[in-house]
Amino acid sequence: MIRAASKAGLSAMLVVPLTGCGGNWQSALDVYGSAAISLKHLIILIVAVCSVVWMLVMIALIAALWRNRDARSSSPEPGRERRMTMAVIGAVVATVLIISTFTVMSFIATRALTVASQDDLTVRVRGLQWWWGLEYVGPDPSHRFETANEIHIPVGRNVRLQLEGLDVIHSFWVPSLAGKQDLVPGRPNELTIRVERAGVYRGQCAEFCGMQHAHMALLVIAEPQEDFDKWATAQRQVATPPTDEEAAAGLRTFLTKPCAACHTVRGTAAAGTTGPDLTHVGSRRTIASGMFETTRGSLAAWIADPQTIKPGNNMPLVPLTPDELRAVSAYLASLK
């Protein structure tokens, strides 16, 4: 009875950590970016070879202990010294070979991580407490636009990310696509990502950056070139003016209350740059850097009390009447 229970407990304990390996939401073992793929191959090679070496060493150790017991009584056999010397030399040669191979493999993997000479798209990623500001820059200044927390990229293209922190050090980490790269204030870093399969990949800040570090997530959405072009064209547009009365009232509230001092909605008078660009906030999957799915309700909850939802963040609690809150959330949800 006790045995069965302990067995069940043990298997439950094993299952819990193993479930962490499943799913492609955010895992360095489930890779779709060229950098992450080469890193995964490298780590699997190293783990496999080291496991074999460890087992051989253990076998040799046990064999040595075993042999020693008999050897003590009998006299040393001829040629033993010579065999031992050969074994040691063999082990040294094997060690040198293995480590050299690792060095070469590691060098090859690192080459795959370096910034590609040719990129198809450049995105400036700014790390802030606690969200990600994104600026798509193109050769043509009219193609430039801003968004936040959700990076859309075309599949199979090199995307150059220019990373910079604007307040403290953050780190960009999308485990399925690439390794970590820090966003340091005053020192731009670069990271090239290339995704081989369409999908949604979660990433998050990987350098402790303050109270809400854990709530600083982002999504990378890789899609076919046509879909990406369609998305980018839509993002470049200014916000569509509200069509119904409630959303129009929401826009008025947005412009007269402190909202517009920090947020931009292109096509309106709101041009603040401290907070995320909200021109197409309704088209993003999440708000508040991955805290909620974007719905009118979650937008209203966030505006009503941002300091309870994400304490310490820089969005202040702006006192609004219930009607104003309803109108503003309707307006923001309509910004597709």
Binding site: K257, P258, A261, P316, V318
Partner: peptide, 8 residues
């Protein structure tokens, strides 16, 4: 007054 909250 219309751009910042009292706290700010």
């Amino acid at each position: 007054g219309d751009k910042m909250t009292t706290d700010q």
